[in-house]
């Protein structure tokens, strides 16, 4: 505390008017920069709408999002294939990522010895620190060949043979494709989801948990019947936050999805996502309509992630208020 007391002591007495002017100026300065945050968001929306306008006017919003044609030669563009790829890869990421993130959060909050808590939490969070392009290069050279050699043949041999859902797992094992991209996304969103789950699990009053233990509940019963019901909204918020990340993730997906503008029934086949199409084609897109169509894709991605993230944020705010009361 010595440093702070010294700081207080060094303050000279205010010189009346000079202090008041300083206050007005400093307040205005911080206000302007706070305003800048809003302006950035406003600017993003305006510039995306302006950039997307030629494409949306030519094709019409509805037929743009429902058409799966993507032909730069005839200048016919539709967003359905990238939207489909974005949603399917994110769904796979959630299917794999949520249970694992939940397990990690339960382990760290309920089982782990105290001395191991911090190092373990840090290591899981380092997964989020590794840049997306590193996951991409690793996915392309290490993970995709592994998937091609061991995992996909196994999936094709088992699930692929089941009548009905078999078509979801059909085709040659290519290594790269929607499933591989979704799986790498799962690893990338895992730390975001689990760290929020961990935080909200810590907000459960110990009294509640101890009462349950006192009644003879096992750990898993305490998690299911006390911790989860108490933190439901926060857990959902964390999941939505992870979903927001997965939807917009670019580089890792670009490396392993195969970049094919088509919708295949099989999740083992190559596809594309909105962000991967942008990363791959934008700098090489000749022609205003081509470029405008790509910006329109970006605009759609922005709307989707904005809604998802806003819902996530509102859920977490509600939990905060609940914990505050």
């Amino acid at each position: 505390m010595t440093a702070e007391t010294a700081g207080v002591a060094r303050i000279s007495l205010a010189k009346g008017r000079a202090g008041a002017i300083g206050d007005v100026v400093f307040r205005a300065l911080t206000f302007l920069f706070a305003l800048l945050v809003l302006l950035i968001l406003g600017g993003v929306i305006v510039s995306l709408v302006a950039g997307a306008w030629p494409a949306l006017r030519t094709f019409g919003f509805f037929s743009f999002v429902t058409s799966s044609v993507w032909n730069p030669v005839t200048e016919q563009f539709g967003a359905l294939a990238p939207i489909y790829g974005t949603l399917v890869t994110s769904a796979i990421a959630m299917l794999v990522g949520i249970p694992v993130a939940f397990g990690v959060a339960v382990f760290i909050t309920e089982i782990c010895p105290i001395w191991l808590k911090r190092p373990l939490a840090t290591m899981i969070e380092l997964l989020a620190a590794i840049p997306s392009i590193i996951y991409g290069i690793w996915g392309l050279f290490v993970f995709a060949p592994f998937v091609q050699q061991y995992i996909q043949p196994a999936i094709i041999g088992t699930f692929g043979q089941i009548p009905g859902i078999g078509m979801l797992f059909a085709g040659p094992p290519l290594g790269i494709g929607i499933l591989t991209a979704g799986f790498i996304l799962a690893i990338m969103v895992l730390p975001f989801i689990s760290s929020i789950m961990r935080d909200v699990f810590e907000t459960v009053p110990p009294m509640l948990k101890e009462s349950a233990y006192g009644l003879g509940a096992t750990r898993s019963e305490v998690v299911w019947r006390v911790v989860l019901p108490f933190t439901r909204i926060g857990v959902l918020g964390g999941v939505m936050l992870g979903l927001g990340r997965a939807l917009g993730e670019t580089m890792a997906v670009t490396f392993v999805i195969g970049n094919a503008h088509r919708i295949s029934a099989s999740i083992l086949q190559p596809g594309t996502t909105i962000s991967a199409s942008l990363a791959n084609e934008f700098t090489e897109a000749f022609g205003d309509l081509y470029r405008s169509s790509l910006i329109a894709l970006g605009f759609i991605l922005f709307i989707i992630t904005f809604i998802v993230l806003a819902i996530a944020k509102m859920m977490l705010l509600r939990l905060q208020k609940q914990a505050g009361n």
Binding site: V37, L247, G248, T305, F306
Partner: peptide, 9 residues
């Protein structure tokens, strides 16, 4: 929201 918004945007 900007904190988690896709960087490609």
């Amino acid at each position: 929201i900007l904190l988690s918004a896709p960087s490609i945007i």
